[in-house]
Computed example of a mutant assay.
Amino acid sequence: MAFSIRFAHAPDLSEIEKVENAADQLLIDLLRPERWEPAPTGESRIREPGYMLVAETGHAAVAGFVHVLETEDGCHLEQLSVAPAHTRQGIGRALVTAAMREAAERGYPTMSLRTYADVPWNAPFYQTMGFAERDPATPFQRALVAVEESLDLDRYGRRVLMIAVPSEDSEGTAHRT
């Protein structure tokens, strides 16, 4: 399937929320939580400091997105979601690659993320993208851990912080449209 990656626009925002809720269902089915919060709205995501990239299919449908926060401590991959109908087609990998390239172009020396260590499409996937486990070192990273602890997310499995070095040489550039 052909797809392109570009920066998110206002018409994408409702689709972004739908994609995340659909993708979350895979995690819900695996972890079996008693309750799972619905995805934040695309509108709330786009208002946060940072950027969002979408993978768009030939039919102009949003097949996936990546949301990157820019904080006083650096660059953080907040969310990667691919619609279940579009998984295992390289979309997630292309989105992360494009997000890392954009981070490098913006001058960030590293990109962080928090994820489940043992969910196959979480930490093992990110390891193939150059991310490695690290201890939280910045105030932002420690705050993420505190929020996760308050939500008791580790009851579903070990949570880890991962860091990668973004590269401007990465393939998967986002198109500014």
Rank of each mutant, 00 (worst) to 15 (best):
G90A: 09
V68R: 04
Q25F: 05
V54C: 08
Q141T: 00
V165S: 11
E48W: 02
S170L: 11
T173F: 03
T177F: 14
A85F: 11
Y116Q: 09
D73Q: 08
L27P: 01
T177E: 15
E56P: 02
H67C: 04
V165T: 11
Y116K: 04
A23H: 09
R32E: 12
E168D: 04
D169N: 09
H9S: 08
T110E: 11
A2V: 01
V147A: 14
A2E: 13
M162H: 14
E17M: 05
E72D: 15
E78P: 02
R106K: 13
L31R: 10
A117S: 12
S14V: 06
Q89K: 15
Q141W: 05
S170M: 03
R32P: 00
G50C: 03
T71K: 10
P49Y: 07
T97G: 02
E102C: 03
T115H: 03
L113P: 03
R101F: 02
G50S: 08
E70S: 12
A137T: 00
M52L: 13
H59K: 07
N21C: 09
L77G: 03
D24T: 01
D29P: 02
A146K: 15
Q127H: 14
R47S: 10
G42F: 13
A8C: 08
H86C: 01
G107C: 04
D29R: 09
L26M: 07
Y116T: 00
V147F: 05
V119L: 10
K18Q: 15
V96R: 05
P136K: 07
V54R: 11
F140C: 00
A143F: 08
M100I: 00
I91V: 10
F125P: 11
Y116N: 05
F131L: 11
S81G: 09
Y116H: 12
G42L: 12
I5F: 02
F7Q: 03
L26I: 07
L161W: 13
V19Y: 14
Y156N: 10
M111Y: 09
A60M: 08
T97Q: 15
L27Q: 13
R134V: 01
I91S: 09
W121C: 00
T97H: 05
V19M: 09
E78F: 08
R134P: 00
A117H: 13
T87S: 06
A94N: 08
F3L: 08
R134W: 04
V147I: 13
A164G: 08
G107S: 05
P109C: 04
E102W: 05
Y156C: 05
T57E: 03
A103S: 15
E70M: 13
A8I: 00
S44H: 13
N122L: 04
P33M: 11
